[in-house]
Design a binder for these strands. Structure first.
Lengths: 214, 214
DNA sequence: AAATAAGCTTGACTCTTATCAAAGCAGGGA
DNA sequence: TCCCTGCTTTGATAAGAGTCAAGCTTATTT
């Protein structure tokens, strides 16, 4: 484990808006978020952007680079942030010596695949209200598991970025937030969200959530 | 390598419509398609189905089960098929002894993540015509790489399954195929597809394809 | 502090795709 | 072979989300 420590000690700070890596750059390391928030996104040739995730502390970026030795997405800090760099070659070597580390990596990658499948379910089957409810509840749950308030938080991303992640336009995100507020389910003050009746949001996605657990 | 052979020799045959595994079942093995075609799908509580992939020979199913030891999707044969079972525990052990196998596994899982990101791009940003064009070209390319004809093939899945994968209703799939046929880009005869002008389909998705290669 | 830019909200209108419905076709089983 | 069932096609209509536009708030720059 001290070997592991030696490898991951290096960390890097980024300012808001700064790129951690870009699609097409050569892949050398994975990055774990230490503090702050990131978005990852893939861009099409004509400039359309698909945000593929919003990452917070403890979450890993760059797994998509392993297959081709080239990063497959952009990773951008949404606020001043800090990451640990994990040189993949060394991690791979270590994981041969430490079975539990190897197993941990397999599980991490598998978890990312499960997460992606859930996003597909969201993008393929849900309506705008369901998507936004699912998004807010997911955020809430992840904040709560990190010791932050579950029902009172600041959005680190713009309406446009939320829309890109959810397959919606920014106007639709804005309108849907307003609708939730009118119904008394939450209070929106720009980036500040207070969930008043999270159970109503949960009811909204009860049917369309994945059938077997989280 | 003979050790590897010993592990993967076991194979299993399935009839059309048969489940290879179901979401919620305990995870023990990965499965590689040997012959035939499978679909994987996740279901929501109210019965909505999202097809997450169509798999052909050489492709791997079950990676999403590693994270939780429980399968996260259903896998169903779309025609009489054969798979190799790869007991994951043994593969994990072997991969510690054979570095190239370990690396291969990391790459496989990463490739699945990249594939999922591209599906997100499709579901989040593309219009019906673009989705279907991307789907047909992807199928064509994968068939070609297996030695089959690139521009003349049989769809193994129904319009409804295609629609589920692409986030469209079956009627939209049918209409869009008809439109392509009217334009002389392809010929549809039920499940039989002949691509006449694949370059037109490529032109349709030129803008919305991923910016940095495959 | 004023000026400017960026992001957000809301309204009016349009367009794509979903929904509902009916009819056609094809393959499998008796 | 014939019938039945399931899949597909096509049309008419409706609903959801997108587009365009204007005004407003907040943040940044000078």
């Amino acid at each position: 484990m001290s070997q592991l420590d030696a490898v991951i000690r290096q960390s890097r700070r980024l300012k808001r808006g700064e790129y951690l890596f870009r699609s097409g750059e050569s892949f050398k390391s994975l990055y774990a978020v230490r503090t702050g928030v990131f978005k990852t996104s893939v861009a099409s040739q004509d400039g359309r952007e698909q945000v593929t995730g919003f990452l917070m502390s403890g979450e890993l970026m760059g797994l998509d680079g392993i297959s081709s030795n080239v990063h497959g997405c952009d990773a951008i800090a949404l606020e001043d942030s800090e990451v640990c760099e994990l040189p993949f070659g060394r991690m791979e070597g270590l994981s041969r010596e430490i079975p539990s580390l190897q197993h941990h990596f397999y599980r991490l990658m598998s978890r990312e695949i499960v997460r992606d499948q859930n996003v597909m379910l969201l993008l393929g089957n849900m309506k705008a209200e369901e998507r936004l409810a699912a998004f807010l509840l997911n955020l809430s749950q992840r904040l709560a598991s990190r010791g932050f308030a579950a029902n009172d938080f600041i959005l680190r991303m713009s309406r446009e970025e939320i829309g890109s992640f959810l397959g919606l336009k920014l106007e639709t995100v804005s309108r849907t937030l307003s609708k939730f507020q009118q119904q008394g389910w939450l209070v929106v003050d720009h980036k500040h969200i207070q969930l008043i009746k999270p159970e109503e949001l949960k009811a909204l996605i009860a049917g369309c959530a994945h059938a077997h657990g989280v």
